[in-house]
Design a binder for these strands. Structure first.
Lengths: 221, 221
DNA sequence: CGGGGTGATGTTGTGCACAACATCATTCTC
DNA sequence: GAGAATGATGTTGTGCACAACATCACCCCG
């Protein structure tokens, strides 16, 4: 009971869960990739048993799929399934304002401002993975605007379902990374403008618009 | 490879998952109940290992909560958390029409008609658990109207989160069962009328209205 | 008589060995 | 030479023994 150095089983679980989920979202494990339970367990210094619990959770979240005797694979999504999820995400973004919108605190605004710099710098030396990381950080800051907890959970879930597929198109250069960075930088700026005015509704509308357009570019690209 | 008598590991998992989830929803395992991994494993004739996978999934769905050294408990929800989920459910019900509403097939209509009889009969000898079962069957038939798959998943998830809490109030007689049966019977009838006309929107609106009113009764009761 | 320590007991968490299963290369047969 | 049987290999799934942990009753000490 000295301090936080002691880690419980739950903490270990959360840590592994977040780590692997992040890798999936950042395309370190791209859709279709086969994961090895034994390798992952060895890497994290645990046995297969607790690791399998993490994988089971990720399977429940729709990010993995295990088949006995074959392997566990990162799920993929066709354009039709992707469109369904995108359409739902659009509607969910509209619900943010109807259900307990939250005024951003100073830390959130500071976090958004802190995002602008690295994004601009990234345009000089575009890197898909760094872009993915910034995108994810931006999204998680925006999650703070959602006061309705179930809606927040669902929104996050849908984000992880779709964004990695979208990012795949950026990685494969079907979508121009420089262009996306330019748009992303503008999205951050517009969102900041809205939030500085305390206009959460405007921020939500901006996010909706960018979400819609990003899917259009994915479709056309 | 003879026929369907051979059950795969996945089938076993699905079966256990559905069975336990149903028990939770029907309040065989009421909120706060402690489940014994050993007992459940013994009952289903498997070891703790595959059972724990099922429990992990249910924990991911927000229905269970495990604490090392203490036990795994069926989750409960306060009135505030419940209201948040109900408000989200209301909005989701409104999205059904915006996102791929599906015309009910003959089997669905037949299923709804088949529900009317038992419901009316139940009013003569009210039984909370039988009511819960009919309610669940009704809901699953209505899920068929949702063409957007992610929306269907989320809607189902939110149903399992809230309905069991609502049913708890019926079990404890904080809500009058006879009255609820009367209302439920009317809801089925109204829904059938709308669906026979092919008016999915009307059916969705009816469901929204009843959802809203049921929460009001829970709040006031 | 009160309070803290301490062990018994029961729970979930972990590690490991093996079973079930799928896949692929090899070999045997025709 | 072609195709089917078969074994080797690697994967996830299962069972079991034990560790880690929380709780509570009990006892010892003051």
């Amino acid at each position: 009971m000295d301090d936080a150095h002691e880690i419980s089983a739950r903490d270990r679980f959360e840590r592994l869960h977040r780590e692997i989920r992040t890798r999936i979202c950042l395309l370190d494990y791209a859709p279709g990739t086969r994961l090895s339970e034994a390798d992952l367990a060895a890497e994290f210094g645990v046995s297969r048993t607790p690791l399998r619990r993490v994988l089971a959770r990720l399977e429940g979240e729709g990010l993995l799929h295990s088949v006995q005797g074959v392997g566990t694979f990162v799920t993929d999504a066709g354009i039709e399934a992707l469109e369904q999820t995108y359409r739902l995400r659009l509607e969910l973004a509209g619900l943010v304002v109807r259900l307990d919108p939250v005024m951003p605190d100073a830390a959130t605004l500071a976090g958004l401002e802190a995002l602008a710099g690295p994004t601009r710098r990234l345009r000089e030396a575009p890197d898909p993975r760094a872009f993915a990381a910034l995108n994810m950080e931006f999204f998680h800051l925006m999650l703070g605007l959602i006061g309705n907890e179930p809606l927040r959970e669902v929104t996050e879930r849908m984000y992880f379902q779709t964004t990695r597929i979208w990012l795949k198109s950026v990685f494969v250069s079907r979508i121009d990374l420089r262009h996306e960075l330019q748009i992303f930088e503008r999205e951050i700026g517009e969102t900041l403008d809205a939030l500085r005015l305390g206009d959460v509704q405007a921020a939500a509308l901006i996010q909706r618009a960018h979400l819609s357009m990003s899917f259009q570019r994915l479709r056309d690209g």
